[in-house]
Amino acid sequence: TYTWNTKEEAKQAFKELLKEKRVPSNASWEQAMKMIINDPRYSALAKLSEKKQAFNAYKVQTE
């Protein structure tokens, strides 16, 4: 089980997950979700809006 003390740690864990699963920077949210949804870190960020925000930040960083 994973635990995160801060929102920032949770966001980092979520981005690490995207990186580890090699989600391409041109992937849509739907494509990315299919690649990461079974990992416990997918739940790091509770709100869908937070997940999408972190995903978009990840995409910008990896382009």
Rank of each mutant, 00 (worst) to 15 (best):
T1Q: 15
T1M: 13
Y2S: 14
Y2D: 14
Y2M: 15
T3K: 10
T3W: 10
W4P: 10
W4V: 06
T6D: 10
T6R: 01
K7P: 15
K7V: 10
E8N: 06
E8Q: 09
E8F: 08
E8P: 05
E8L: 07
E8Y: 07
E8I: 06
E9V: 04
E9I: 04
E9N: 08
E9H: 04
E9L: 05
A10L: 03
A10Y: 03
A10P: 04
A10V: 03
A10T: 03
K11F: 15
K11C: 15
Q12H: 12
Q12A: 12
Q12E: 13
A13H: 09
A13V: 11
F14W: 03
F14T: 00
F14P: 00
F14S: 00
K15S: 13
K15T: 15
K15E: 15
K15Y: 15
E16Q: 09
E16M: 08
E16H: 07
E16N: 08
L17Q: 00
L17H: 00
L18N: 01
L18G: 01
L18Y: 01
K19C: 13
K19L: 11
E20N: 05
E20H: 05
K21M: 10
K21R: 11
R22Q: 12
R22N: 14
R22K: 11
V23I: 07
P24M: 03
P24R: 04
P24I: 01
P24C: 05
S25N: 10
S25I: 14
N26F: 09
N26T: 11
N26V: 07
N26G: 09
N26H: 07
A27Y: 10
A27T: 08
A27R: 03
A27I: 09
S28T: 14
S28V: 08
S28A: 07
S28K: 08
W29I: 02
W29Q: 00
W29D: 00
W29Y: 07
W29E: 00
W29H: 01
W29F: 10
W29C: 03
W29R: 00
E30T: 09
E30P: 12
E30S: 12
Q31F: 10
Q31Y: 08
Q31H: 07
Q31K: 06
A32C: 12
A32D: 00
A32M: 03
A32Q: 02
M33G: 02
M33C: 11
M33E: 10
M33Y: 08
M33S: 09
M33I: 10
K34F: 09
M35Q: 07
M35W: 05
M35H: 06
I36L: 06
I36N: 00
I36P: 00
I36V: 05
I36D: 00
I36K: 00
I37W: 12
I37V: 08
I37K: 13
I37H: 14
I37F: 12
I37D: 11
N38A: 10
N38P: 04
N38H: 14
N38D: 12
N38C: 10
D39P: 00
D39S: 02
D39T: 01
D39G: 00
P40T: 07
P40Y: 13
R41L: 02
R41C: 02
R41Y: 01
Y42I: 01
Y42M: 03
S43W: 11
S43P: 06
S43I: 08
S43K: 14
A44D: 02
A44L: 05
A44K: 03
L45G: 00
L45F: 04
A46S: 13
K47F: 07
K47G: 11
K47H: 13
L48G: 05
L48D: 13
L48A: 07
L48R: 06
S49V: 06
S49E: 12
E50W: 08
E50M: 04
K51W: 04
K51M: 07
K51H: 02
K52Q: 11
Q53T: 08
Q53S: 09
A54F: 05
A54D: 02
A54N: 03
A54L: 07
F55R: 02
N56H: 13
N56K: 12
N56V: 10
A57V: 08
A57I: 07
A57Y: 08
A57F: 09
Y58T: 02
Y58G: 02
Y58Q: 02
K59D: 03
K59P: 02
V60D: 07
V60L: 13
V60R: 14
V60Y: 12
Q61H: 09
Q61C: 11
T62Q: 14
T62Y: 13
T62W: 13
T62R: 06
E63T: 13
E63W: 05
E63G: 12
E63Q: 07
